[in-house]
């Protein structure tokens, strides 16, 4: 865990606001109909922190993410973003507090061009800064610059993933939530996505990453949570998880 969120006394250069968690979920329970999917999850993400969320299929990762960003209503518990209680808020209000989303399946608008996908929700961050502009996103993803006039449905899987991440960056978020951003991509493209995530991390933007690639997650994340049947079965530094062969086998099947 990063020192910045653990202790409130040691003021970092960023000042006192950096001490509050960017996102804080407390005892979150979420149901789909009668199915109890998320069963009392606590989760805190500090400013600039990279948190990994792992677990086998069907353990509630996507439902937890959707609960955090307001797409799926939670039954009990609370979620706060930047100190604001957002429990029950519409997803658009939560997004406006600096949370952006790269969904599983990428969520590209097929009827919009690449440029339109990128600029649709472009806005300065909560701090009023525009660290990410169209020019900068196109510099990071030159492939998108080549395809700027193409329709969203004319891209390869890797290009769609870059577009989805670029679109999230254009909202200048404090936190980006990525669900299976490297799934189904060729190794070279995966590597490019991981490099981009490292760049985002270096820029001070927090990320919550759902992914199945243990080695890449261990390298990218400050902290990893493993979800088993809707509860947190492990939380700690990646090295601790990787060192525990028994837990790896039991929780992740690797």
């Amino acid at each position: 865990m990063s020192a910045g969120i653990a202790s409130s006394g040691t003021a970092s250069a960023a000042g006192t606001r950096a001490t509050a968690p960017l996102l804080e979920a407390r005892a979150v329970h979420t149901y789909y109909g009668a199915s109890h999917i998320v069963r009392g999850v606590d989760l805190a993400i500090g400013p600039g922190e990279t948190v990994g969320l792992m677990g086998r299929n069907g353990m509630g990762k996507t439902t937890l993410i959707r609960s955090l960003i307001g797409l799926t209503p939670i039954k009990r518990g609370s979620v706060a973003v930047g100190g604001t209680d957002v429990t029950g808020f519409a997803a658009s209000r939560i997004a406006r507090l600096g949370v952006s989303y790269v969904p599983e399946g990428r969520g590209i608008f097929a009827s919009l061009s690449v440029r339109e996908n990128l600029t649709l929700a472009a806005r300065p961050g909560v701090d009023g800064e525009r660290a990410w502009t169209l020019e900068r996103v196109l510099t990071v993803f030159p492939r998108l610059a080549e395809r700027i006039g193409n329709g969203g449905d004319q891209l390869s899987g890797g290009e769609q993933q870059m577009l989805s991440i670029g679109r999230a960056l254009m909202t200048n978020p404090r936190l980006i939530v990525l669900d299976e951003a490297t799934e189904g991509l060729a190794p070279l493209v995966r590597a490019e996505i991981w490099r981009t995530l490292a760049l985002i991390r270096a820029g001070g933007t927090a990320t919550l990453i759902v992914d199945k690639t243990v080695s890449a997650m261990a390298e990218a994340c400050d902290r990893i949570l493993v979800l088993v049947k809707g509860t947190v079965a492990f939380e700690g530094p990646p090295a601790t998880l990787v060192a525990d062969a028994e837990a790896m086998q039991r929780h992740l099947g690797v």
Partner: peptide, 23 residues
């Protein structure tokens, strides 16, 4: 941009919402 929001909302309203645009 408003037209883009209309087209995007017709296609994936949830994604539009998650990007901070009130559908």
């Amino acid at each position: 941009r408003f037209g883009g929001m209309i087209r995007a909302s017709a296609e994936k309203p949830e994604m539009v919402e998650a990007l901070g645009i009130p559908v």
